[in-house]
Nucleic acid binder design. Sequence first.
DNA 1: TGAATAGTGTCTATAAGACAATATCCC
DNA 2: GGGATATTGTCTTATAGACACTATTCA
Lengths: 253, 253
Amino acid sequence: MKERSKTPETLDERAFLAEYDASHYPHPSVTTDVALVTVGAEHLRAVLIKRTRHPHLGEWGLPGGFVAMDQSLDEAANAVLTKKVGISGIFLEQLYTFGNPSRDPRTRVLTVAYYALVDEAKLMSDQRMNGGVTLAKLHVPWKGERGGPVRALDEQGNELPLAFDHAEILGMVVQRLRGKLDYAAIGFELLPRNFTLRRLQMIHETILGRPLNKDSFRRRMLASDLIVATGKHEADVGHRPAALYRFKRKRSG
Amino acid sequence: MKERSKTPETLDERAFLAEYDASHYPHPSVTTDVALVTVGAEHLRAVLIKRTRHPHLGEWGLPGGFVAMDQSLDEAANAVLTKKVGISGIFLEQLYTFGNPSRDPRTRVLTVAYYALVDEAKLMSDQRMNGGVTLAKLHVPWKGERGGPVRALDEQGNELPLAFDHAEILGMVVQRLRGKLDYAAIGFELLPRNFTLRRLQMIHETILGRPLNKDSFRRRMLASDLIVATGKHEADVGHRPAALYRFKRKRSG
DNA sequence: TGAATAGTGTCTATAAGACAATATCCC
DNA sequence: GGGATATTGTCTTATAGACACTATTCA
């Protein structure tokens, strides 16, 4: 540390201030928005909150909040989940940072977007979906990993207008999920602890938006070393009960 | 639109201000850092600039700069390339946003990291690598897509100490490149317009850090519909000259 | 001609898709 | 037993890796 003071003290200070004095520049506001995604029977779904303030009052937006000065981005995203949705301890990963200068009409607001994954049963178990909070169905108007905005629909299939650039953010979430599905263990984040291969396949099909070959899917999963048979089986299903599997957490070594 | 004004005007204004008045909160500084990467004979390489200011004076950092209030993040990253390295019109993509509160000892500084890819010949053609700017060799101490920081070395193999969290950023660049290589056309960004299959394979091998099967690589590339034979061949190579190929830009449809 | 790498052809192993047959549960 | 889905097994096809062989250039 001491070697650095070879440079004259005055220069050090001048240089230092030139870069760090925040008040020299106006700074953008920084928020984090979290797309909390789950997979229902037929659709990808995301938690949306009805805006009670301008701008985009009455439209639907992702849960979000400002990043505090002493908070890491991950902490800020976790805080959004806890405070706005009342859920924690789930898969959460940074997605992308959206910074178009005109994305918020008030002032310059960057948002560091995250996405979170959760089993639908866990999400619905508590009374989280009350007035102003909904679990919208996502309609993806493109195939494969092409990308682009998605639409949000309510139970009746009515369009829920999305605030800001949140349709883009949700679109990128779908794109990311489709891309990661093959090589990352994200399907399991959307299922309860024990699950059948059929349920897992349905998760994959819903994310990808296309049917998968059953034989091949089963073989790949069983060969993947990602899941273990629990020895248990379904019950009360009206047909031969399927074996229940569990996600094998990555080897501790 | 008129329905919204059911809410009293005063509430509108109060709500509006509560969210938008920037001065209510201190805001973090936001910079963008760009990892400009190329592939040399044996190594991945990245452009580094020697810091002439505190903190981390004398260490090496990625080219970077503040994001201006009227600039999109992409524009800010492009401006960094133009102003700090004197290059433009190359592949540039957002990587990740780093926001650990202690990553910069001065004040809270988020950085939206980008990575850019360029053909080594194009980079070296001009006199860009002068005092304080170097094209460091990257040493990746992990295999596959595990991730983690990488080290920067000069021509003699001496360690170039990296400032801030730039070793992590470069590590994530390598991770991203390895992940995208199979399904995205990024290899071509690192080559001149015309190239041989062998050169393309070397690019892939350098990025992945492992040898690839020649027959299989050639077959995959020729079947991929991503490249076209130009009809031309190498010259003056001391052995049978290889056919030159060109990247086929995505169909305009 | 020899060194060196490009390019072709063939064989084998592996994984995916298709399909048929059998198993097991609830009603 | 009948309905419904699980699970197993076999066959076919596509792709990757291995290897042998031929082709072409410069020195």
